[in-house]
Write a protein that binds this DNA or RNA. Structure first.
Length: 493
RNA sequence: CGGGAAGUAGCGCAGGCCGGUAGCGCAUCUGGUUUGGGACCAGGGGGUCGCAGGUUCGAAUCCUGUCUUCCCGACCA
């Protein structure tokens, strides 16, 4: 634990892995490219999930669940979608094992038990869901259909990274069906706003809302909207996507409805999702040398109280104060608090441990405090320590948690804004990517070919065309051809 | 899928070239002293050396195969 970890280090990947392991968020698993989310990491995910789930319900959505397995014939129905995911699918081909006659105590796949039709383990659920929607939608009265599912999906990526890109991951995927194009586009944008709201106001993660270029678009979508975040090493991370699917899936699965004029029409669709990748974003955006820095609104633990005592008697006295007064008053305000009076470790050990885990506020109470009627309060984000009196401590802590939340957000926001750099010639463009990192705002001629060339030359991709991008005539950074607005380039995870 | 590194106690590692009793630190257990920033002393427990073959009187060590993990690249709607 003596090793120093620094976000700006060139060993950023190593720093990140160490941090995930040491903070007890997750662990490597025995299965290729998968991870074990440990209780602390899962508590964080649950908090995020609860907030999102409420936001979805507040915007009229309901939850449902669809199968893990997608028959290959359904999977291939929407051609572009199938093609886009084909290279990263886990496929079930058999349904039984048997004792291996060659090797005692070993099992082998029973060749007799070959499935007639292979089952694709869902990399995303459009296919199985739209096949189901076909039976649910007949009339305009059945629309809109606004359903979300919390699930796991599998994508057999070549290279994996904990939280950011694992073979199996947890997410939510919303799948909606609408009577009109306008309504579907409205839904797509509404959910993008929900994501941005969640990222900024709960995760303290400032994001840029935008539209993907055709190259980066979801396979099977007409338009992919996204929120893009910036990590402390200057690389961008796609934090969430919301897709306008047009009538592609309705046509592929033959989902039609009778409108008010008794005309048969294909329905319009959207899908949108965020995943456990958000946890990776959280870690990379806020953490420091001492460990995680978690925003109070979603931190599994908001306050930890550490007693400092000599002997049983002092421990008793402090315990009485904490258990009878401080904790009840904090809990009354809905604050998630833990009193760690275990004898296992000394105070210094506990301080370091809870800092590593990113607990936003720590309260230490010792003999001196008992005499003075004070507690020592240390905040994780600034590492500042201050004395507070017992009186009104709960209200003071509630305010402090808000302040920490805001401070983390503002810090990340000024980092983001100071890392959006305009470039008007190729030399500056490359130099900014190499030396400063972050987003480079530049003109692009709009062709996929140019985008591809820029990627192979610089490893930078178009992260998005920002929604708020102003019309501004310019010339493409690579080809010099005319361009109507700037787009954001960055190297990305 | 290409290049590199690694797999030995719960965790982190040494040993390997040059084959011959399985080692260290942390953690754990027992007892004691401690407790305002990762405590100290003493004693104890814990191992099919990733897996499968091969060479050998003898393999953690040498050879072959295989699985897994990490890093770099390609890939990543």
């Amino acid at each position: 634990m003596s090793k120093t970890i620094t976000p700006r280090d060139q060993d950023y990947a190593q720093w990140y892995n160490d941090l995930v392991l040491k903070s007890a968020l997750a662990d490597y698993s025995a299965v290729r490219g998968c991870m074990v989310i440990k209780p602390y990491g899962f508590a964080l995910w649950e908090n995020m999930r609860d907030v999102l789930d409420k936001m979805f319900k507040d915007t009229g959505h309901v939850n449902a669940y669809f199968p893990l397995f997608v028959p290959k014939s359904l999977f291939e129905a929407e051609e572009k979608n199938a093609e886009g995911f084909a290279k990263e699918c886990a496929v079930v081909t058999h349904y039984r094992l048997k004792a291996d006659p060659e090797q005692k105590g070993k099992l082998m796949v029973d060749p007799e038990a070959k499935l007639e039709e292979e089952l694709v383990v869902r990399p995303t659920s459009e296919a199985i869901i739209w096949n189901t929607y076909k039976g649910w939608i007949q009339s305009y009265r059945d629309l809109p259909l606004l359903i979300n599912q919390w699930a796991n999906v599998v994508r057999w990526e070549m290279r994996t990274r904990m939280f950011l890109r694992t073979a199996e991951f947890l997410w939510q995927e919303g799948h909606t069906a609408h009577a009109t194009k306008e309504e579907a586009i409205e839904e797509t944008k509404r959910m993008l706003d929900v994501y941005a709201d969640f990222a900024e106001n709960y995760m303290a993660l400032p994001v840029i809302k935008g539209v993907k270029s055709a190259n980066e678009r979801f396979a099977g979508a007409e338009d992919t909207y996204c929120i893009e975040a910036l990590m402390q090493d200057g690389k961008a991370l796609q934090a969430g996507t919301s897709h306008f699917l047009g009538q592609n899936f309705a046509k592929a699965f033959d989902v039609k409805f009778s409108d008010k004029n008794n005309q048969l029409e294909y329905v319009w669709a959207t899908s949108w999702g965020v995943s456990t990748r958000l946890i990776g974003a959280l870690i990379m955006a806020h953490s420091d040398d001492e460990g995680l820095v978690l925003p109070p609104k979603i931190a599994p633990l908001q306050i930890v109280i550490v007693p400092i005592f000599k002997g049983e008697e002092q421990k008793q006295q402090i315990g009485n104060l904490v258990n009878n007064q401080i904790i009840p008053s904090l809990k009354k305000l809905g604050i998630r608090v833990k009193y760690d009076d275990s004898d296992q470790n000394r105070p210094g050990w506990k301080f370091a441990e809870y800092e590593m885990k990113g607990v936003p506020v720590r309260i230490a109470i010792g003999n001196k405090d008992m005499e003075n009627g004070t507690v020592e309060v240390a905040r994780r984000d600034t590492k500042e320590k201050k004395s507070y009196s017992f009186e009104g401590i709960a209200e003071a802590m509630q305010l402090l948690l808000q302040e920490v939340q805001e401070n983390i957000f503002n810090r990340a926001k000024s980092f983001l804004h100071s890392h959006i750099t305009e470039a008007d010639n190729w030399e500056d463009f490359v130099k900014t990517l190499d030396e400063k990192g972050g987003f480079v705002s530049a003109h692009w001629d709009g062709s996929a070919d140019t985008e591809e060339k820029i990627k192979s030359l610089t490893k930078a991709t178009i992260r998005c065309i920002p929604l708020e991008a102003k019309d501004e005539a310019g010339s493409c950074i690579l080809t010099g051809k005319p361009s109507a607005k700037r787009v954001l380039f960055a190297r990305a995870y």
